[in-house]
Nucleic acid binder design. Structure first.
Lengths: 338, 338
DNA sequence: AAAGACTGGGTAATCGATTACCCGGGTTCC
DNA sequence: GGAACCCGGGTAATCGATTACCCAGTCTTT
């Protein structure tokens, strides 16, 4: 059994109230008592019970975070960013994975709420399927959606302007001389998948580029590799491929190159996210960078502003991404017709 | 304010004791009361407060896990495996990153203990630096070390037999005809780094192979790339390179190949861990597989056996790894002298 | 010098769920 | 018919930290 404030008080020969005051410093005590309590606490190795404190204070000092999975490096970087950001507030992170399943997601939200987290940050795995669980949670505790979001405006959101990002990607390959472009992304179950495809299609139309039916699978390396093979099989390659995320782009790169395609001479490839290893694939990947630190900071800031139960209009904060040009795309200078 | 069991009891017109009994089923109540309580709970949307329950029961239903970082894919897979394993027990995981810093690690352990986790799983970031924090934590709560461990036998451990793994790696390249081999690993701050180097050196000596001074950096892709460049600069390449983990191996592969080296014709490369993308790099990586699921299951099982404060000799469970041969190493058949 | 303000101490209520303990009414058994 | 038991209900203690509230002593102020 561990040592409580009663033990400390007894050892110091004072009441629990004095012990608590001496330790928290929230009311003056005589130096004499402060000293005795401090010594007793140190000798006994007293460590306050956070559970009891949480019950009494009605606040746990934790926020819950639910992401589709930590296998995807984009989510691990955003989790790390959120964790760093929360450290400034002495708040701990309870991390859960929904394993891209709306049922698991709903269960995880339930247990986080039962544990009385002070707030929630979630990247919902489904655009429609996650609606009830997310809205229900948002009604009970401050909640912000980060990166992905549900349809409708029921809950706050911080993320990137997918439309603007896709515009940059498409305009960039167009400036590099591409006339035809194809999109390789994920099935349209979540908001990122949907908005990036939409953004791509609008941008391609605006740029007057020729497109084909998009290839939609998962946001994984495996699907990128598979999609590359399909492109090779399906006859003449497009001038450019714009991908829904970097995992797909890296996989695609790999299978196009093993198929003998030169990147970027034959085909330009652009990713999305700018995860760590985008710089380290071969050749280094041109991609649309998500300002992860800024998004995390903004999400935490917004979370702090929300007062539970306050019927305030939901905010949507879309941060502008920027393209970072590396070596999988032809530069604007080298304009050549195919 | 959220709905408590008192609200449910009042709505159902019974005492809190009856409400609690009806909901938990831990003592019989009349069907009449059971029914009324169930209806009241459903109507009010009652959800038990896990904080209050934890305080009363002296158990939180959570275990804490501390890993050096979730950027390293090996740790994300092992975290996922542990999470899956714990689900079977209705236990939640509180995940923390030590950011490879013993100070951060000690702080994280403190806050997990303050939150009264029922147990701890840790992969200590330092072999010596983590000793006090780990032993102190182990004294207060069931604790098992997973993968990495501190020196001495002060706390239980589940991991892989690094020595055996390295033997397999070295014997495999030797069987493929290699006469010289170099080790590329991490600086010797943690147990994995140290034991893998030791294992490598003993195995190389036993196999009668020529070695050079090992290259030691970090367990990262970046270091693998850098180490590859150094090998290329330092004159004639060895017949084989054995790496401390897969990240290093993948990076090394990349820079050796861009330097014009053929893999595995000129140099065999072997990794360690068998993380997901080892199959998907180019060419697919020969590596020593860690049985992550089994390790996670064993760690959870062991954790369940430990009774806090029970002075029981610490156990060390080393699971045998096995090499998985892919295409970065010459097969035993193709024996050729260089 | 008396009244009021201030200081620093202690007692006990509080947070919410569980459960030890008690009690009254109905059965059972001799 | 009366003692012993069982069953199912309620009251209140418990977990540990914080703090509202109270009180005694001291300091100010007029």
């Amino acid at each position: 059994m561990s040592v409580t404030i009663h033990d400390v008080a007894r050892a110091a020969g004072v009441s629990v109230a004095s012990a608590s005051r001496a330790l928290s410093g929230r009311r003056r005590v005589t130096p004499e008592i402060a000293e005795r309590v401090a010594r007793a606490a140190a000798e006994l190795g007293y460590q306050p019970n956070a559970v009891a404190k949480a019950l009494r204070d009605q606040t746990t000092g934790t926020i819950g975070m639910v992401v589709p999975g930590i296998g995807n490096p984009f989510f691990t970087t955003i989790v790390e960013a959120v964790e760093r950001e929360l450290q400034n507030f002495g708040t701990d992170l309870l991390l859960c994975s929904s394993q891209s399943s709306p049922e698991v997601e709903a269960r995880r939200l339930e247990t986080l709420l039962a544990r009385r987290v002070d707030g929630l940050i979630i990247s919902p795995c489904g655009i429609e399927a996650s609606v009830p669980a997310v809205l229900d949670a948002a009604r009970r505790v401050p909640l912000v959606q980060l990166d992905r979001h549900i349809e409708g405006g029921g809950a706050d959101w911080v993320g990137v302007d997918d439309e603007a990002g896709m515009s940059q990607a498409v305009d960039h390959v167009a400036a590099g001389g591409a006339h035809s472009v194809v999109f390789v992304g994920s099935r349209l179950l979540n908001s990122s998948a949907r908005l990036r495809l939409d953004g791509f299609e609008r941008a391609a139309a605006r740029a007057g580029m020729e497109t084909r039916t998009p290839l939609l699978g998962d946001f994984t390396l495996e699907w990128g590799i598979e999609a590359g093979r399909r492109l090779l099989d399906d006859g003449p390659l497009p001038d450019a491929v714009v991908c829904g995320n970097d995992e797909i782009a890296v996989g695609l790169l790999r299978s196009l190159r093993t198929g003998g395609t030169r990147i970027p001479e034959d085909v330009s490839v652009v990713g999305f996210d700018d995860v760590g290893h985008a710089t380290m694939c071969d050749p280094p990947l041109t991609t649309v960078r998500q300002p992860v630190e800024e998004m995390a900071a903004e999400a935490v800031r917004l979370l702090g502003q929300i007062k539970a139960g306050d019927p305030r209009p939901a905010q949507r904060i879309a941060i502008a991404p920027s393209i970072v040009v590396r070596q999988t795309s032809r530069p604007a200078a080298g304009r050549e017709t195919t």
